[in-house]
């Protein structure tokens, strides 16, 4: 079984899943996030077009207001 890692949690990889779908699957509903795959930044407008490959290490960082 192929897997990916999302914020340190190992989950099963699904063929052709994109970032947008992955965020929904993980129930990440926060709007203000930064996404990186294996250290590479994925911009907001690339979520639908970026396919998550098997073995990918995905980091989703939530930014909350205040400063």
């Amino acid at each position: 079984m192929k897997t990916i890692t999302v914020n340190g949690n190992e989950i099963n990889w699904e063929k052709d899943i994109n970032i947008d779908d992955l965020l929904k699957k993980m129930n990440y509903t926060f709007k203000m996030i930064v996404v990186k795959i294996d250290g590479n930044l994925i911009k907001k407008n690339e979520y639908k077009s970026t396919i998550v490959y098997a073995g990918a290490d995905v980091k989703v960082i939530h930014l909350v207001s205040g400063g």
């Binding site: 203000m32 930064v34 911009k43 907001k44 909350v64 400063g67």
Partner: peptide, 20 residues
């Protein structure tokens, strides 16, 4: 050092997009 989260995201995306 921004206040609003959308500005934080904008800055991080702009910065890392240019200077990874």
């Amino acid at each position: 050092a921004f206040d609003k989260s959308e500005m934080k995201v904008m800055l991080i995306e702009t910065w890392l997009g240019k200077f990874p």
